[in-house]
Nucleic acid binder design. Structure first.
Length: 285
DNA sequence: ATTACGTCCTGTCGGC
DNA sequence: TGCCGACAGGACGTAA
């Protein structure tokens, strides 16, 4: 379940193999992921040099020397398998059948690295967009600020919440308000800030919104330092696991006692906009 | 403008 | 033991 910390971890681990690398071979083993791949996808990538790897929200961006940018979204189960250049006399290790079955896109670099995009549920997607027009692209034009950037603070969030009747849970998941949060970190941030996920967002005091913005930044920074969270779906390109899941205070903990000091509440699971919300009804007001 | 809800996709897990 | 539904949760389309 890649959210910002997981996507950033993946970006960093792809860098050694892909930043500055020239693609010598690209294979799309099917014409679509979540959406159809763009026209002549593999051909437009083959021979291109990836100038660097960036991240915007939950997207990985790879600007190319062709004037286009490869945009990648991992969806739910998308991940990369990275094999750096190796001794050609040593055959590659066999992969488990499930891996092979859902290996949809292959990238080979001039230096001999083999990068495989694997996505069982195919909620991920890739696109090629004109780099000069990237900011104006519908997918990015309306995207909210980076939660760890300077534009995301209490004043900004207060404005975004103004006049809104939906709960902060729903609004923080909206990538047009802030880019990169997903279900897990929104639940965790709301609990840390002591803010109820169901309270009408316009009715949250500035002081609480301030605490919420701080909690969002803190939980993301901590998760990133831990290499993200590994649940059933997410795996790092290096095969390692993130370990922030051990720091969850509410996510997936329905029925367990609230971990807040002095609070005797019990974590509840409810459904908001079709998604699970985990929270403590006692200390989240 | 805002809100609500359905859709996509497949593997896993719990209950019967 | 096997079947079946619930669930996981990203973005997006549609309709009110």
């Amino acid at each position: 379940m890649p959210e910002l910390p997981e996507v950033e971890t993946v970006r960093r681990e792809l860098e050694p193999a892909l930043a500055g690398a020239r693609l010598t071979r690209v294979v799309a083993r099917r014409p679509d992921l979540r959406f159809p791949l763009p026209h002549r996808f593999a051909e437009r990538l083959t021979g291109a040099r990836i100038e660097r790897l960036e991240r915007r929200g939950k997207f990985i961006l790879a600007p190319l020397d062709t004037g286009e940018t490869l945009t990648i979204h991992l969806g739910m189960t998308g991940r990369f398998d990275v094999r750096l250049a190796r001794d050609p006399s040593c055959p590659p290790p066999d992969r488990p059948p499930a891996e092979r079955k859902h290996a949809h896109i292959l990238f080979e670099t001039q230096a001999g690295a083999l990068i495989t995009f694997v996505d069982a549920r195919r909620f991920g997607f890739m696109d090629l967009v004109d780099t000069a027009a990237l900011a104006a692209h519908p997918r990015f034009a309306g995207m909210g600020p980076e939660p760890l950037g300077p534009a995301f603070d209490a004043a900004f969030l207060k404005r975004a919440f103004a006049g809104r009747r939906q709960g902060p849970k729903t609004l923080l998941l909206d990538q047009r308000i802030v880019a990169g949060l997903g279900n897990i970190y929104v639940c965790e941030a709301l609990h840390r800030a002591g803010v109820s996920p169901v309270r009408g967002a316009a009715r949250i005091s500035l002081a609480r919104v301030d605490g919420l913005a701080a909690a969002v930044r803190a939980v993301l920074a901590e998760a990133m330092a831990a290499g993200g969270s590994t649940l059933r779906d997410y795996a790092r390109p290096d095969g390692g696991e993130g370990y922030f899941q051990h720091a969850f205070l509410v996510y997936g903990r329905a029925g367990k006692p609230c971990p807040s000091t002095g609070c005797h509440g019990t974590i509840r699971r409810i459904v908001q906009s079709g998604r699970s919300t985990f929270f403590c009804p006692v200390c989240q007001k």
